[in-house]
């Protein structure tokens, strides 16, 4: 009882990376709290799903296997989680900050009247003293996230309501196998009595999922552009540099909003979180929302006309000047010194 639960998203038989990242974080938080780590998998044909989930140190895996639940649907999925949480009384429940997690999480939290914090960038365990009420709360989940356009970092707590719920974006937490041979207990939930036709009032009539074309998270080198790049045409220089170095092109929200790059390339709190070995920030001022998505990069180079741009203070190297002037020099120098 009062364990830590992670909702696992499954697409085409594969557990989503974000769920495995949450299991990794969940394992370490559960160790700190001295509680168990439990996972929930809902879908169809899940008999082998434990093989993917248990290596992350899961003690109990709840499986709901039903043809009608092959693809995510708000009403049946939320009903299942609400009932499970009512019964198991988790102290913490974590979900991916994905389209699914952000559809499901609020629905479940509303029904349970428990608090939910979206898009956390860090989760920690800590105490809280309510001086007014003269109460001390032990071992709460600190849900840490940038707020208010990223100008502040807020620590959110749910002192009285359970479960303490939080969503986290893909790529924010590290994914690490706990023990490849670890095995936990499987609990199969029979939902035939729980869900009925009314829960399928919204139905999927067509579904078209594309393979991810741009994979920023897997790119070892990212050349990212901001509003300071100036135009879509100037962005071509970034593509050229990325191609020469074997990297991928990313963009800040401002550059995406300005139409310089497509939304899939957005890096930052409201885009993808990346940690490449080299991050070249071109014309990016470096608002906290953007930095939250890239400050774990091993080496950061900032190219900016503004010597005072905030990004420079986290950059290992700063080159002052325009992108269209500097990138050609980099390409030239690289080509000259390789081959």
């Amino acid at each position: 009882m009062n364990n830590l639960f992670v909702f696992c998203e499954i697409e085409e038989g594969q557990v989503a990376d974000v769920s495995l990242e949450l299991l990794t974080k969940g394992r370490s938080l559960a160790n700190q709290l001295g509680c168990k780590l439990e996972a929930v998998a809902i879908g169809y044909n899940l008999s082998e799903i434990g093989k993917q989930i248990f290596p992350y140190g899961v003690d109990t895996l709840h499986i709901v296997d039903d043809k009608r639940l092959e693809h995510y649907l708000t009403l049946p999925y939320s009903k299942i989680l609400i009932e499970l949480f009512k019964k198991e009384q988790p102290q913490i429940a974590l979900l991916g900050a994905t389209v699914i997690g952000r559809d499901l999480g609020p629905r479940v939290s509303s029904a349970l009247k428990s608090g939910l914090t979206a898009d956390c960038t860090s989760l920690e365990i800590g105490d809280h003293e309510d001086k007014k009420a003269g109460k001390v709360y032990k071992n709460l989940l600190y849900q840490i996230r940038p707020a208010f356009g990223g100008n502040i970092i807020a620590t959110i707590i749910n002192p009285d309501c359970r479960p303490q719920m939080a969503t986290v974006r893909e790529g924010v937490m590290k994914k690490e196998v706990f023990n490849p041979n670890h095995l936990g207990e499987v609990k199969t939930i029979d939902v035939s009595k729980l869900i009925d036709d009314n829960d399928f009032v919204v139905e999927i009539i067509e579904r078209h999922i594309e393979k991810r074309k741009i994979n920023l998270q897997a790119a070892p080198i990212i050349v990212a552009g901001g509003y300071g790049v100036g135009s879509k045409e100037n962005f071509q220089w970034l593509y050229e540099l990325a191609e020469v170095l074997g990297g991928e092109v990313g963009a800040s929200r401002a550059a995406v909003d300005a139409g310089f790059a497509e939304h899939e390339r957005q890096i930052g709190q409201t885009g993808t979180t990346v940690r490449p070995k080299l991050y070249i920030a071109c014309g990016i001022s470096g608002q906290i929302q953007h930095r939250a998505g890239m400050d774990q990069s091993s080496i950061i180079i900032s190219i900016n006309t503004d010597p005072k741009a905030p990004i420079n203070s986290i950059a290992d190297y700063t080159i002052i000047g325009s992108v269209t002037d500097i990138i050609p020099k980099m390409i030239k120098a690289y080509k000259k010194n390789t081959k």
Partner: peptide, 22 residues
Amino acid sequence: PTKVKNIENVVLQAKESKLIQN
């Protein structure tokens, strides 16, 4: 149910940054 425990203004961590001439 959610309370704001703490608010931190974002402060940039100074890191040793090398300036490369253009």
